[in-house]
């Protein structure tokens, strides 16, 4: 909407708004550009703080080292596994529960919903959960990262709200008259009409799996099962890549000097999957947050 006849005070106000937002925009964007530039600079330039905006002494040594580190590949493959299968379990469980709980004609749906909602506000904490996982024999297995957290109640509420509000009730009546069972209605009608919400769930759960590290840290001891985030933690928080894991001897010698640039390259590499998918799901993401804001 355009307004003519802006007063002087309005112009001042809008200019101030523009300045504040531009400043914030730069503050958010600048570190991203800095990391990208530093990752393409030489180790020496990064170490001595010469990189300010653009790459200095353009070089790929950071990336070469990262890709020559076998643990990075192990972590990448494991994270991909946890993300794909974990998200599959999440979405299947969440959609099933959301569909059933959206059916107001099912006696007891409010009681069962409360059973889920209550866990959002009160939980047993990490220690008793750990003891449970131990008791179930899931410690140090891939299951420990797939099964606990299979349903996030917040996402369940979002999905249930979507199904209840956006699939017309007449469809259920028509399907019932045609002899469709509750199970068939879920598979043939509800799921195909819920593509938008499934995309939202895939995004929320997928990012959660890709980014999680704490559960892996307490449940997994075997390095072959580590997700990428745990290797990242070891490298980013501790000071260097363990030289014994790098096969190339020449690389080993350069590691000390290149510590900084390796970290920047690693940050970029770990963000790549998310940044590739992000543009495609951005509109669903906003939609998901908005559905979630409807009181559940």
């Amino acid at each position: 909407m355009k307004f003519r006849n802006q007063t002087k005070s309005d112009k001042v106000f809008l200019t101030v708004v523009m300045i504040i937002l531009t400043a914030f925009f730069i503050v958010v964007l600048y570190p991203c550009i800095f990391v990208l530039s530093a990752s393409f600079s030489s180790g020496a330039a990064v170490q001595s703080g010469k990189v300010v905006l653009l790459p200095v002494d353009f070089s790929l040594e950071g990336y070469k080292t990262v890709f020559n580190t076998p643990s990075i590949w192990t972590g990448f493959a494991n994270s991909l596994f946890y993300t794909v299968f974990g998200t599959l379990i999440n979405v299947a469980m969440t959609m099933t529960a959301a569909y059933c709980l959206s059916r107001k004609d099912m006696p007891g749906h409010n009681g069962i919903m409360f059973l889920f909602t209550f866990t959002m506000f009160f939980n047993g904490g990490i220690i008793t959960t750990y003891l449970l996982i131990q008791k179930l024999g899931m410690l140090n297995t891939r299951w420990a990262l797939l099964i606990p957290g299979a349903i996030t109640v917040y996402n369940l509420i979002v999905a249930r709200t979507f199904i209840a509000n956006s699939i017309p009730h007449e469809l259920l009546e028509a399907a019932t008259i045609d002899g469709c069972s509750d199970f068939g209605y879920f598979i043939k009608i509800v799921l195909p009409l819920s593509k938008a919400i499934i995309a939202v769930l895939v995004l929320f759960y997928g990012v959660k799996h890709w980014n999680s590290y704490f559960n892996a840290m307490i449940y997994i001891h075997d390095k072959d099962l580590y997700p990428l985030t745990l290797f990242l933690r070891d490298i980013l928080m501790a000071d260097q890549i363990d030289p014994s894991t790098v096969s190339d001897p020449e690389m080993q010698a350069r590691l000390a000097e290149a510590a900084g640039v390796i970290k920047y390259a690693l940050i970029v590499v770990s963000m790549v999957p998310v940044l590739i998918i992000y543009p495609f799901i951005q509109k669903y993401f906003v939609k998901g947050v908005m559905i979630g804001s409807i009181k559940g």
Binding site: P31, V35, V207, N211, S270
Partner: peptide, 21 residues
């Protein structure tokens, strides 16, 4: 669009980023 992006950075990478920056 740009201000949403940092939300997707994991806590490990975020802290690594803070340390580096």
């Amino acid at each position: 669009t740009v201000t949403y992006i940092p939300y997707f950075i994991s806590s490990v990478v975020m802290v690594g980023l803070i340390f580096q920056i």
